[in-house]
Structures are given as C-alpha cells and as structure tokens.
Amino acid sequence: MLSDITLGQYFPGNSFIHRLDPRTKILATLIYIIAIFFADSFLSYAILTGFALAVILISRLPLLMVLKSLKPIMIIVVLTLGIHMFTAPGETVLFTWKFLSVTQEGLELGVKMSLRLMLLLLFSSVLTFTTSPIVLTDGIESLLRPFKKIGVPAHELAMMMTIALRFIPTLLEETDRIMKAQTARGADFSSGNLLQRAKNMLPLLVPLFISAFRRADELAVAMESRCYRGGEGRTRMHELLYKGIDYAAFGTIFALTALLAFLRWGTALCAL
C-alpha cells in the first residue's frame, strides 16, 4: 500500500483530515498561519492551541509522534524566548541578574513568539502526516496552475517531484550497493574526521552520478515513447474534487480566523 513509501512522514489513515482534498489542507494550513499572526491576547493563543490539538485528535495521529516533529526547531524556539525575554522593553521588572533584566512584557512576548513558531510547525506537520507525498504533489500542481500565466511552471515542478519520489528509493538502494561493494574492496566510510570521510565518499559519488545521469537519459526516452509532451492537454486519472467535507473544513478555518480577527480588532470596532 501507500505506506510502502518511506519518504516523508506520511502516516496512513482514514480520518476526516486524511480524507480532505490536498488543496483544502494546503490552503487551510496557510489560513491558519495567517490567523496565528492575528493573535495577540492569551485567549487567542489558547484558542489557536486548542484548535491545533483538536485537529491532531481528529486526525487520530499519535500525539507524541506529532510533537516530536517540533524537535528540530526547539533550539530556535528557546533562542526566540531568550532574546525576547532579555531584550524586549518593559516596565515591570521581574528579576535582574547582573546587567540582564527580565520584564513582565518581555516574558509575555517571548512566550507568544515561541508559541507562534511551535503552532506553525505543528499545524503544517499535520498536513504532511496526513497527506501522501504523491497526493500532496497533485495538490500543489493544481493550486499553482492559475499562476502559470505569470511564469510559474506548475506542471514541471510537479513532474520533477513525482520523478524524485519515484527515484529516491532506487538511488538509495544503489548507494547502498556501491557502498557495500567498495567496503568489500577495503574502502572505509565510517572512520576518520569529517574531511577524511567526505574524501572517502568521493569514489562513491562518481559511479552514483554516472548511473543517475544514465537513468535520467533512459527515463526521458521512455517517457517520450509513452507520448509525454509536457503539461499541455494532459488529463489526470484522479481529478481533484472538492467534496462536502472540504467545504466544512473551509467553513471551520474561516470561522476560526474571523474569531481571532474579532478578538484583536472587535473591541476597537465596537468602541467606534
């Protein structure tokens, strides 16, 4: 099944979120990111966090697995927190240590900023967890199509992604094979310092590149003989179609955005 594709972090399933059209998921993610920047009060942050957790719950992804996707940005999150904490201007000083002082305002700003980052990554990782790379590619192609007039090569980008998805496992297998063959002949890929190791990799890369170019050449001929002539006049077996659940999802995400916009500017509007 699709789960055979080890690439990316796709986690197969049949939840509400899994069944959404990929375009819905991509657009909803973008709208959510905009909504994040509407948030200023702690209430709005609570709502955003609650929404993200609800989406993860509905998608039936293991919460721990999704949270793990935050790991690579943790350093940035801590840095953001630290910088804001110590440098943001503020009145109420909480405590001072040597020449550094932490203010109430700085702390709040730091927490909000790091929360923004984490929510942003959390929500977009739900997109990649619930959408197979192939379907994601279809979605991106479809969304980019209107921009073809201004020179965005939508079909070409999607085709390249498709071929990359197809050949990455093949090239990995090949790398492995060449590595084993060269290890058997005494090559060493695992010891020495970084520079030494990089140097040892060189005899591996040369045959790999030669083979990759030969593959590309043969693939191009095979594609042409199967009538490939670019995106013009091309149809798809699975045309993307918005269904009821997609409209429901759009409704929800718009409602969330409207709520956050109201929380930010609503009181000001009412005062007018």
Binding site: L165, R166, R215, C227, T235, M237, E239
Partner: peptide
Amino acid sequence: DNQIVAAIVEEDVAFGPENVGVPG
C-alpha cells in the same frame, strides 16, 4: 527501473493515457 515514472503502480500505468488526454 528506468521506465517507470511514478511511485505507485497504478499511477505509472496511467501515465500514458494521461499524456494523450484520455478523460479521467
């Protein structure tokens, strides 16, 4: 290996008909 285009079998088989514009 060098004539299969897509990462799913049925997607690959569909590649030719898609190219010539057969309806979905």
